[in-house]
Amino acid sequence: MQTHTISAILGALLLALPLGSQAQPVTQGDLTVSDGFMRAMPPNAPVAGGYLTITNNGTADDRLVSASSPEAGEVQVHEMTMNGDVMKMRELPDGLPIPAGQTVTLTPGGNHLMFLKVATPFTEGQTAHATLVFQNAGQLEVPLAVGPMNARKAGGRAPADPHAGH
């Protein structure tokens, strides 16, 4: 529960902070998707993670059912689970719940989108595109800014200082 709270706070912070040249938030129905980003792919890399923040402003739960991209042969919604010291990553067969009034972040080391069969590797400065399909909100096109290889968040900078917004 604590990590949920922390993610929510971090997500809210990310929303609140002006982060410069990055993809603009996209809103449709009750959902706002923002801070979409990816990492530049190292040579030979066969797959790439996609990260973004989804806020459900409504009163009904929604669900990210699937995703696709013109730049990738396939996009999967993945969950990351920790069991002791063992980390596992799997496709979520039923998609990712977006509870009413909450913010869900897809981050490196957490739940994420997985771009497979990428024809041309993503490079820094480029913008990738994903189409997200939600159970209620329907389809949503979102841009993902490609940052450096080690990017931890949108805009490619170090994690925000919690006091920076004061």
């Binding site: 066969p46 063992v86 990553m89 799997r90």
Partner: peptide, 9 residues
């Protein structure tokens, strides 16, 4: 497909 299935020490 190159997907990482898991990581452990």
């Amino acid at each position: 497909d190159g997907l990482v299935q898991g990581v452990m020490p």
